[in-house]
Design a binder for these strands. Structure first.
Lengths: 144, 144
DNA sequence: TTCCTTGCAAACGATTTGCATTGGA
DNA sequence: TCCAATGCAAATCGTTTGCAAGGAA
């Protein structure tokens, strides 16, 4: 955590956003949990020390500021994780049974091939491609 | 529509599910709208002739039976479309501004390359890959 | 002081469910 | 006839917001 905090603070300060205790704790918890997590998961992981409403507000602010990334899971719940400039670009393994999400880091070669697919598929659609999301769906080790 | 109805009815009948007027209309509307749509969109498209609660129930039943597929959008709303055995396998262009979703049909070659990526990336993760989801995010022609 | 942030409670909105009624095979 | 399907109203539940109090610069 210590190593990312200065850059986080700098990034937030640039927008007049404070890195408060609760936010610090939120980021540290997410870093420790190491994957996309729901507000409820973060909340209980921190021993309910941050009220859900405040947590949601912090998550929104931090996501907005590009510190976190959010994903709407197939169970209709939002999961948050550190943005890719911390974690590196990656994709997800999504368990269709329990909704849990795990990270997979593509090799440079895989990512290059993926980017080529994006380019090819968006070509001529009138759509301005800005990014991509690649999820592998299946059963996690617990559920199969 | 007429051409898919018999197979739908057969598939439903096999599970003791009836293809009623409301469900027929729901499927026809989705087929006509031609892309992932929310319950609210379907509801208003049909002139509010089907109450939302019934519509949700039909959508759940039809999705369960494999007639429809559902997607949780980044705006937290569920969109439904005909399952891939009607539409063919495809992927989505998602507008990050308005949440609209459009279909893209990959070529056989593109799909083969995508499958290879899935295989490579899931290997050695303890995860039983069953499918994949590939979404291109960007701005639709209306929003850019 | 100024303005961002927090906490609590109340509000929201998409989706779900209980229950009595209707309707199709 | 029998059981799935429907409609209405009420309930859920994750998430958001109003507002007054707290806190950092």
């Amino acid at each position: 955590m210590q190593h990312i905090e200065p850059s986080v603070e700098k990034r937030l300060a640039a927008e007049g956003i404070r890195l408060t205790g609760g936010r610090r704790q939120t980021i540290a918890t997410l870093a420790a949990m190491g994957g996309p997590r729901t507000a409820a998961e973060i909340h209980s992981e921190t021993g309910d020390s941050i009220p859900l409403s405040s947590l949601y507000r912090s998550l929104a602010v931090l996501t907005d500021a590009g510190i976190l990334a959010s994903h709407h899971g197939s169970d209709g719940v939002i999961r948050f994780e550190l943005a890719e400039w911390f974690t590196g670009h990656h994709h997800h393994l999504v368990c269709v049974e329990c909704g849990a999400v795990f990270d997979v880091i593509p090799t440079a070669d895989q990512e290059r091939r993926m980017a080529r697919l994006v380019e090819e598929m968006a070509a001529g659609t009138g759509f301005a491609a800005a990014g991509h999301r690649f999820e592998i769906e299946g059963l996690c080790s617990k559920c199969r």
